[in-house]
């Protein structure tokens, strides 16, 4: 690690970034705070209500359910995507044409607009026109993601695994490529088993990328909106309504600006806390090296 030069003029270089991000981040955040303490009918008819919305939101059972659902969802997809991603990364060829081809093919789902991902699975899972739905019907499973809660969950999770495992896989793949060939030769001489090679050579090298992978997957799944919205619309009932969707419903659908703003702030604070914990962990790990 090189030592950095102390120079406060560097702020001039950061200024454009600060201004452009502040425009889209700080002004809206301030507005959300303003909304959250008022009952708003229109810009000229509004009343200060103090912390009433916060109390309402914190005690709102719909929010609690959405939050619980969100955590179950985020941990489920992490539990599937991380091991699966590592396996895929281990199987990918490291050299030659095959490596490029595998990289492109595996990366495809990442480049599909999120609503199209929803559409793909919406079609794929239908029993009348979709391959997956038809397959399930063929093997005698009564599967319908639009009316059955379990099936809806299964489809939403399957969709996320399909969509985002490539990200974990590509992160791990590049982590694996950073391991010098000498390590493997040493392991071969020691007759190390496949498992030992993974446990003592590959996994330690992967820790860093994995933490970042987990951070990204956790955060992104925590704000998931478009894919389940297109696929199930949050249903059946509200069984697949996650935090973002419940928020958008409240803000745009019912136009409850005040409570929606209070909801946003609670949501934002949770995100900020998780983000800080991960960031501190990553930075401390880099410092230790």
């Amino acid at each position: 690690m090189q030592t950095k030069v102390e120079n406060n003029k560097a702020w001039f270089l950061v200024m454009p970034v600060f201004l452009i991000v502040a425009f889209s981040a700080i002004i809206p955040l301030m507005t959300v705070v303003n909304y959250s303490v008022q009952d708003i009918f229109d810009p000229y008819t509004r009343y200060f209500v103090g912390t009433e919305w916060f109390k309402q939101v914190m005690l709102d059972s719909r929010l609690h359910e959405a939050l619980l659902r969100q955590f179950i969802y985020s941990f489920t997809i992490l539990a599937i995507e991380v091991p699966l991603g590592i396996c895929v990364a281990l199987m990918m060829p490291t050299k030659g044409r095959g490596a490029s081809l595998a990289l492109i093919l595996v990366a495809i789902p990442l480049l599909i607009p999120w609503n199209v991902v929803g559409t793909i699975w919406q079609i794929f899972g239908r029993a009348d026109i979709g391959l997956f739905g038809a397959f399930m019907a063929e093997i005698g499973v009564d599967y319908n993601y639009a009316s059955n809660t379990t099936d809806a969950w299964l489809t939403v999770i399957l969709m996320d695994v399909w969509h985002w495992t490539p990200l974990v896989a590509l992160l791990c793949y590049s982590g694996l490529r950073a391991i010098p060939e000498v390590y493997y030769q040493a392991a071969r001489i020691d007759q190390a088993s496949r498992w030992a090679v993974f446990r003592h050579i590959q996994l330690p090298k992967l820790t860093n990328v994995l933490i970042i992978g987990v951070l990204l997957r956790f955060m992104d799944s925590f704000m998931i909106y478009t894919e389940p919205f297109v696929l199930t619309g949050g249903g059946p009932g509200s069984s697949t309504t996650f935090l973002s969707q419940s928020l958008v419903q409240q803000a745009i659908g019912q136009f409850d600006i005040g409570p929606a703003a209070a909801f946003s702030l609670v949501y934002f604070l949770i995100i900020l806390l998780v983000c800080w914990v991960f960031y501190t962990t990553i930075m401390n790990m880099q410092k230790d090296k």
């Binding site: 002004i27 301030m30 507005t31 705070v33 303003n34 909304y35 303490v37 008022q38 708003i40 810009p43 509004r46 200060f48």
Partner: peptide, 15 residues
């Protein structure tokens, strides 16, 4: 600025 719906307490908070 009207659309931001400022109130005195929030203005004090941000200041």
């Amino acid at each position: 600025m009207e659309w931001m719906s400022w109130t005195l307490p929030t203005a004090l908070f941000f200041s």
